[in-house]
Structures are given as structure tokens and as C-alpha cells.
């Protein structure tokens, strides 16, 4: 009897390739979400007026904030959806085990988060071109990637790690829901409880505010993502595939 021995690395790599191919549709939904966000942010997120020499200068800020909120929600459901029964069963039609399934899911989420983060950052440039074409307003030259590569990379990284953290949260959530359906309500409870309670506010403030620099925030996001992924792996490794 001759047995094939696949190493974990090989299997994970094959799974990643397979999943990237199979889940390509989610990236198309990402594009739809981004375009939706872009359309809503065309009027600007905030504005500021200054009077100078008898002239009122109004600055309308167009930021990527709306898009990133949309993409974050997309990421939450992306993390969630790949833990659902249908997706899990299709994975187990091929060579896999709990660990390789988790690892390849995580790698796929990382790849998709990187893609989502970078495209979210770049999608802003579509507005930069579209807005002056369709509006008869003054046009302010704003820092572009070439003018300010460091801050561009920082905010790109921030978007990537934010999306990754949220998709990791979605993944953990989905894993818990797979264990028991009652966890379905966990997210809704969290969304209500976090801003409403004192401790919740403290946690939010610890994460989002009180940061010395964006880099620290970045590190916090990545750490949270790792915690979520590890928890999800611990929870799901003993799970059966109820085919």
C-alpha cells in the first residue's frame, strides 16, 4: 500500500489557490460596495470655511471614510460567510483538515483584506478625477501618493489592517455561530452594548482613540486580528463537518 503524504503547507497552499479562485465573486461584490461608497461620498464628508480678504473660502473635504465604512461591513460579512456550512462542506470535499481549513481561510482573508485595503485607498482617486470633471468648482491639489508616499502607505496599511481586523471578527463570529446559532445575536448585542456601556466605551476609546500615532493604531488592529483568528481556530478545531 502506497500512501500519499501531503504536508500541511502543501495542503494549505493548494486550498488557498482553490479558495481564491472559488471566492473571486466576493471581490466583485467588494467593487460594488466601493462604488456605492464612492457615490455617497461625492458630496464630501466635511467642510470648512475661512474668510480671507473679503472672500469666503469653503473647503469641502472628500475622504475615504464612507468607502471604508462600507468596505468594513463587507469585510465583516466576508469573514462570516466563509465559515458557513455550505462553504465549510465544499472545503471538506477536498483534502483538508481543521487546521489547514482554518489556516487557508485566514490566508484568504488576509489576501482579500490587502486587496480591499489597497483598492479602497486607490478608489479615492476615481473621485479626485470625477469630481472636478463634473463640478464647476475650484480644485485643490491634494497630496497624492507621489507627493507624500509615507503617509499614503501608512493610511493604506491602516485600511488593510482595519479591514483585516473586521474580517477576523466576522470569522470568529461566524465560527461561533457554526457552533451554536444563538451566537448570531452576539454581534447585535455587541454593537448596542459597546457604545452604550461604560466598559464598552472604555474599550472603544482604548482601541480607536488615545493613539500616539497611526502606526500604533495599526499594530492594535493587527493584534486584534491575530487574537480573533486564534480564538476562531481554538473554537473550531474540534468541530465536526456535518456533511
Amino acid at each position: 500500500m502506497f500512501l500519499c503524504n501531503s504536508t500541511l503547507g502543501e495542503v494549505v497552499w493548494t486550498q488557498v489557490k482553490f479558495k481564491m479562485n472559488a471566492y473571486l465573486g466576493t471581490l466583485v461584490s467588494l467593487i460594488v460596495v466601493q462604488i456605492l461608497g464612492l457615490m455617497l461620498s461625492i458630496n464630501g464628508t466635511s467642510s470648512m470655511s475661512t474668510n480671507f480678504n473679503n472672500t469666503d473660502f469653503q473647503f469641502v473635504w472628500i475622504t475615504a471614510d464612507t468607502v471604508i465604512i462600507f468596505v468594513s461591513i463587507w469585510a465583516l460579512f466576508l469573514g462570516n460567510v466563509i465559515t458557513t456550512k455550505g462553504y465549510r462542506n465544499t472545503n471538506f470535499s477536498f483534502v483538508t483538515n481543521g487546521i489547514s481549513n482554518n489556516l487557508s481561510n485566514i490566508i484568504v482573508l488576509i489576501i482579500m483584506s490587502v486587496f480591499a485595503g489597497i483598492t479602497t485607498f486607490l478608489s479615492h482617486y476615481i473621485l479626485r478625477i470625477v469630481v472636478p470633471f463634473f463640478n464647476d468648482v475650484g480644485y485643490v491639489r491634494s497630496g497624492s501618493i507621489i507627493d507624500d508616499p509615507l503617509s499614503s502607505i501608512t493610511s493604506m496599511g491602516l485600511m488593510v489592517s482595519l479591514i483585516l481586523m473586521i474580517s477576523a471578527g466576522g470569522y470568529l463570529w461566524g465560527t461561533l455561530v457554526y457552533i451554536h446559532r444563538a451566537y448570531m445575536f452576539l454581534l447585535i448585542v455587541l454593537i448596542i452594548a459597546l457604545p452604550a456601556t461604560k466598559t464598552g466605551q472604555m474599550i472603544l476609546r482604548f482601541i480607536f482613540a488615545d493613539n500616539m500615532s497611526l502606526f500604533v493604531l495599526n499594530v492594535k488592529f493587527v493584534c486584534l486580528a491575530i487574537i480573533f483568528f486564534v480564538l476562531a481556530m481554538l473554537c473550531s478545531n474540534r468541530l465536526e463537518v456535518r456533511r
Binding site: C4, N5, S6, V11, N89, N97, R238, R243
Partner: peptide
Amino acid sequence: NNLRVSANSILVDDQM
């Protein structure tokens, strides 16, 4: 959860 078993066995059923 064994990779070696998974690589060398397959179960064909209607829930595939």
C-alpha cells in the same frame, strides 16, 4: 482532522 487520512481517503455521498 487527520491530513494523511484526508489525503488518502475519500467519501463519496450525496452531501458532497
